Simulated scan of single mutants.
Amino acid sequence: MNINETESRRLAMLQVCDSVFPVGAFALSNGMETFVQRDFLRRGADFEEYMKNYLEVAPYKEIGQMVLAGKYATDSRVSRKGLAERLIELDELASALQSAREIREGSERMCTRLVKLAEQMDAGQAQTSDGHRGFAKPSPADNATASAADSRENSIIAVHEHHTERHQLHDTADGLYGSPSLDLYAGLIRERRCRGLHSIAMGLYAADHANDVRDAAIMYGYSLLSALTMCAAKAIPLSQYAGQVALHDSFPRLVRAVNIAMTLKPEDLGISGAYLDIAAMQHEILYSRLYMS
């Protein structure tokens, strides 16, 4: 992999982790607003402690889900059908572990937006690459010619095969486009075999575009902390200075959280974080709210 491709992959991951990427992350406080109204978060030191507690839990929640999805999709020993089966299992487990309704629904909405934006970006890049115009979804008439079971399995795998071939068309970074792993997940969501969670989608996007899963997980973790910092600035309210200091001081803990996530198995997910889940559930009945969750 040459330096241009390496940097292009890093930029692709930075784009989807950027605060201006429109998936709706900054409309969600993930229950933090409950702590503010309960008077637990009042100043910078309180928020620093909140970030510390959040990062103790994150490996077993969003970051862990993201890492597992990325590792599945980058495992050369796993077939396309095997990947689909693993994603269905991970989606079911991660969805069941989302105790708060607002958190689960918010993650599903963010996943839908990420998939849609990734499809649009891939289609735009495909149209400018040597005449390849991207993948056209099968028409209802085409689907009707096959049995329901065969059509579902074949259409999902076909998308994955098509984009995998497109990844191999060119040796330069400019010729690399398509999101085969994310497309596979999108197909499973359309067929209602998966609910669709943002953390899993981010792991699959990382498998398709990032240099490696661990580097992508650190960027993803940073995007989660950055979103919480923006929420705190509005809800506490917290000064931008205090928020950025707390964010910066959390970096070593974020790296440790990612290192833990890289060692986890599916059965390790959800082993902690009950109080954060309770706060998220209580958010649903707050008298007044700034955020959707």
Rank of each mutant, 00 (worst) to 15 (best):
L114V: 10
L290W: 13
Q240H: 13
S179M: 09
L254E: 08
R193G: 02
Q244L: 07
H162L: 08
G24Y: 07
L41C: 09
P138T: 05
F26D: 06
G203R: 00
V78A: 08
L247T: 06
N53K: 14
S293R: 02
P140A: 06
D122I: 02
A27I: 03
S179W: 09
A207V: 09
D18Q: 09
P237L: 08
A148Q: 11
Y60S: 00
S99D: 13
L290N: 14
I260K: 04
R43Q: 15
Q65Y: 01
P140D: 12
S179H: 15
L184N: 03
A274L: 06
A173K: 03
H170F: 15
A45I: 14
A216S: 04
G31F: 04
G178R: 13
A242E: 14
G178T: 11
G273Y: 09
E49S: 07
H163V: 13
A216N: 09
T112I: 06
N211C: 11
A84G: 11
A257H: 10
G31I: 10
A45L: 13
A261T: 06
G64I: 07
L290A: 12
V67M: 05
D249T: 05
L184F: 03
E105C: 05
A246T: 03
L238H: 07
R10Y: 12
D91S: 03
S147N: 10
E165G: 03
F26A: 00
L169V: 15
A69G: 02
